[in-house]
Amino acid sequence: MANTVLIIVNQPIVDQQRFRQAWDACDHRAVLDGAANTLYDVDPTLRPDFIIGDLDSITDTTRKLYEGMGVPVIEKPSQYATDFGKAMQESVERWPGTKQFLAFGALGGRVDHSMHSIMCLSRVQQELGVRLLLHSAQNMTFLIAEAARVLTPRDLVKKAVGIAPIMGSAHITTKGLIYDVTDWETSFTTQVSTSNYIVADWVTVETRGPVVFTVEI
């Protein structure tokens, strides 16, 4: 994945094979604070480009190992930004050509952390001009701002998908799902598309208003 930064979030790495694939596919790798402990447990020989955060979670043993490998351990104590946000900002400053973030472990665990990750989908694209993909053990999630044609190969994704508005309401039209809709209004005060299923190799989504698209993997 050209010009892609892998951001490792502090969640258990359940599928190590998928993690290795993501590690190898990305150009650069950033680790959030306590996620360095997880990376250490998975494979202490893997060398990220940097570790960043308020550093209240990384253990002394982990920090000593990576500093010994020459990995920058960057302390950013500000409580007005999350470690996730700090990592993305640091990445675009280091690598101005960054086109995409793959946040591994960004969903799951604490609900407030997951809500922040979803909020970042729109904010990062608007403020940094970078696409954000949120990975969890069960799903891949990303923003569709206007229209998208999503490749859904059966060897990479499963059937279940959901489409939810991220700001106010949206009107969506879909093709390639078992329950396709046309100019269908969705909002958190009316109705949200969940438990839909893929029936084609491509899913097309047209929307008036940004939506979050999530697919089971």
Score class of each variant (00 low, 15 high):
105 G>D: 04
105 G>E: 01
105 G>C: 09
106 A>E: 02
107 L>N: 04
107 L>H: 05
107 L>E: 05
107 L>I: 10
108 G>E: 04
108 G>S: 10
108 G>L: 05
108 G>N: 06
109 G>K: 04
109 G>V: 03
109 G>P: 00
110 R>P: 05
110 R>A: 08
110 R>D: 00
110 R>S: 05
110 R>T: 05
110 R>F: 07
111 V>Y: 11
111 V>H: 06
112 D>T: 06
112 D>M: 08
112 D>Y: 09
113 H>T: 08
113 H>A: 09
113 H>E: 09
115 M>F: 14
115 M>D: 02
115 M>E: 03
115 M>K: 05
115 M>S: 06
116 H>G: 09
116 H>D: 05
117 S>F: 02
117 S>K: 01
117 S>T: 05
119 M>Q: 12
120 C>S: 14
120 C>V: 01
120 C>R: 06
120 C>P: 00
121 L>N: 01
121 L>K: 03
124 V>N: 00
126 Q>W: 06
128 L>H: 10
128 L>W: 08
128 L>V: 06
128 L>Y: 12
129 G>A: 09
129 G>Q: 07
131 R>S: 10
132 L>Y: 04
133 L>S: 06
133 L>M: 10
133 L>N: 09
133 L>Y: 11
134 L>R: 03
136 S>E: 00
138 Q>H: 09
138 Q>N: 08
139 N>A: 06
139 N>R: 05
140 M>A: 06
140 M>P: 00
140 M>I: 11
142 F>T: 06
143 L>T: 02
144 I>H: 00
144 I>R: 03
144 I>A: 03
145 A>W: 02
145 A>N: 12
145 A>E: 14
146 E>I: 03
148 A>G: 09
148 A>C: 12
148 A>V: 09
149 R>E: 15
149 R>Q: 15
149 R>N: 13
150 V>D: 10
151 L>K: 15
152 T>Y: 13
153 P>G: 12
154 R>C: 12
154 R>H: 14
155 D>F: 12
155 D>W: 14
156 L>V: 12
156 L>T: 11
156 L>S: 13
156 L>W: 10
157 V>K: 06
158 K>E: 15
158 K>D: 15
159 K>E: 15
159 K>I: 01
159 K>N: 15
159 K>M: 09
160 A>K: 14
160 A>H: 11
160 A>N: 14
161 V>Q: 01
161 V>K: 02
161 V>D: 01
163 I>C: 08
164 A>F: 10
164 A>H: 03
165 P>W: 03
166 I>A: 04
166 I>N: 02
166 I>F: 03
167 M>V: 12
167 M>D: 10
168 G>K: 09
169 S>Y: 08
169 S>G: 11
169 S>K: 13
